[in-house]
Design a protein around this nucleic acid. Sequence first.
DNA 1: TGCCAGGCAGACA
DNA 2: TGTCTGCATGGC
Length: 287
Amino acid sequence: MYRIKIKDFDLAQIEESGQCFRFIKCDKALILKDYKNDVYRTIVGDRYLEAVNVENDVYDFSCSEAEFNKYWFDYFDLATDYSKFKESINQDDLFLKRAVEYGYGIRILVQDKWEMLVSFIISQRKSIPAIRSCIESLCQAFGQPIYVDGQLAAYSFPSPESFASHDIEELKAHGVGYRDKYIMKLARDVVEGRIDVEGLGQLPAEKATEELLKIFGIGIKVANCVSLFGLHNIDAFPIDVWINRIIFDHYNGHFDTEEYKGYAGVIQQYMFYYVRSEQYRIDYNKA
DNA sequence: TGCCAGGCAGACA
DNA sequence: TGTCTGCATGGC
């Protein structure tokens, strides 16, 4: 176990921010037992981590300090100072001020590129709970079991090889719907070397988006999500139905991302998290 | 039961 | 180039 103090960090907000689908609140913690606060778990590759907020900015993680510094420090983007993003907000922008105050603990996780590609292809025209259950079903069917102290803790995200070795009809059985052909073609293209997923991370952000848009089943919204959450290009600004509503309701149909150039994606996450909350409905008296 | 969801590709003008 | 339409399925 490793205890550390972290600012601008909230496990529940990260879990609910729509950027990650396998970062969840534990029904029953396997490692961090007997805490009064909620324990969260996440999975990267075959690594399993539990985390809990102990008090104020103090957190316990179910790994050693060495493992935390080697793997999880970067995953939680802890080298980045999020307070400077929050301080830069235009003080005349009351909606954004409220959004940032509400989502004060959001960070942009540095997630697996392949997992983000497939996850956001699945995300199109699905609710977040539906995305979660679809991905979980795929992991159980095509991923590898991960054990903690001899207990089955979770399943890894399926590799391109695993998807490619199955029939497209087998994918369909897990709720991917019409996206089956997108996932299967992507998996085969990766396995056969036509798409270099890791290489995308080496490209400049604009070029990476250009390459993402060439992939069958990926349009501008999914490309921006993969860029932001998978390639950690935090200037990417995905526009979905929620962000469109914000732009229409609060910015007269136009939001200028240039004002937050270099970290517009962080601003987008504050907006997205807030607009979907009960607090937003209270603040703006929406039904 | 019906509506909606972190959209996209393909057809058509 | 811009607009319209069909699409699979689960959660609420």
